[in-house]
Design a protein around this nucleic acid. Sequence first.
RNA 1: GUGGCCGUAGCUCAGUCGGUUAGAGCGCCGGGUUGUGGUCCCGGAGGUCGGGGGUUCGACUCCCCUCGGUCACCCCA
Length: 438
Amino acid sequence: MAQPLFRAPVGTRDILAPESARRRRLVRVFADLAERSGFGLLESPVFEDVGVFQRLGEANDVVTKELFEFFDKGEPPRHLALRPELTAGVCRAFAEHRPVSPWKIWYSGPQFRYERPQAGRYRQFEQVGVETLGTDDPHADVEVISLGVRFYAALGLTRVRLLVNSLGDSDSRSAYDAALTGYLQSRRGELSEQSRVTLERNPLRVLDSKRPQDQPVIAEAPLMVDFLSGASAEHFASVRAGLDSLDAAYEISPRLVRGLDYYTRTTFEFVADALDTAQNAVGGGGRYDGLVEDLGGPPTPGIGFALGVDRILLACDAEGAFAGDPAPVQVFVVDTVGGQSAAVLCDWLRQAGLGADRAFDGRSMKAQMKRADRSGAVVAVIVGPDEQAQGTATVRDMRPGGDQHTVPTSELVAEVSRLIAAAQPRPAIPQHRRQDRD
RNA sequence: GUGGCCGUAGCUCAGUCGGUUAGAGCGCCGGGUUGUGGUCCCGGAGGUCGGGGGUUCGACUCCCCUCGGUCACCCCA
């Protein structure tokens, strides 16, 4: 293969049209839902002081091994990192601006983790999410979680399961930690080598192990639910009741731990059963009641989630949901008399709000017609010597068996608008799939 | 960071026990007599067979290294 000088870095990729348009539309669906629910957009930096992320947990790979870190040219240099997730930056912003509570925000954007790529996992990946800070009302939990549920449904996904659990507050958590650690220590010999290491650093996460050897031990481990304090248990019950009242289906998943260390009380995860890969979690979140304080702000409860755009799109493909956009080009102007007419007519059509395109380089009519077809345009406008002489344009219906007629250019925009309004839009055709058409 | 599999045209792939000018389909470009796409027919462009080294008279084919892709572990969206 003739090798390009450069390619996209490991774990990153270029997303070409029309797939790029589909992603953007997905974010728009999310934004619409979030904003109609009272969440405002927060645009925060793609990089932060490395300290913002180090609060996520010293025992966490996301912080210890997977950070893209760098120093800037300040004197002294500032130690910065590309964000590996978005919640920490949101909490930093809260501590910095002290907005009125509850602060409800949504976001979208790229994040970066230095990991080995695999199915559904990239070094640069995109998430959308919401966060509600400043209230620990269980109704806030319900609002956030159900927003996720409704979003997947809005995309047309049917095989996404919601798993919920409670990790308890710090008191119940430490009681549980002690019990779990004691239990795991007692069966240490049966655990995998990896899990024994994990046990030293963060016993909770042993529950996350996928290694078959660990499963019997995990299956008999004590459950968090049995250690919840009265207040935590009550909170969890309220959240469940709230979800019930919205008919939001969920499963209690007593061993759902989640990756980041800051989670307290409510945790949840969305799993796409349509994905048969190892990375089938398409979203997750929970409460992080201590995080703002950790970052120097006032004690502030918070809850939120992040949904992985890349994986959601994979799940949509697997379910045949959230189909591609219609072609943005509705009219294609074929001009065999030098291209000036194409320039003018495209301009008129575009100013009228239509999607219009044209060919360059003075290609043959046949070649231009082919372009017109490939563009997905419903209508072709043809200007040749005859039309030019008469001040007219030929309007051709590009659908199979469509007819054509000639109109004065003064009536062109109206005529094309009429035809397009009457016609079904054609789908955008990905470059690499043109051959699949019937 | 660890391991499995894979790297031949833009894409998907074929290439017989190592043996002359490396093939197909699709895509792309052009043509099929008068200005018309999607079907059909004809033609064309396009490959240092990922890169480097080695074995050999000879390597796309065998060996080593390296880079990249992919999947899994780890971890996580």
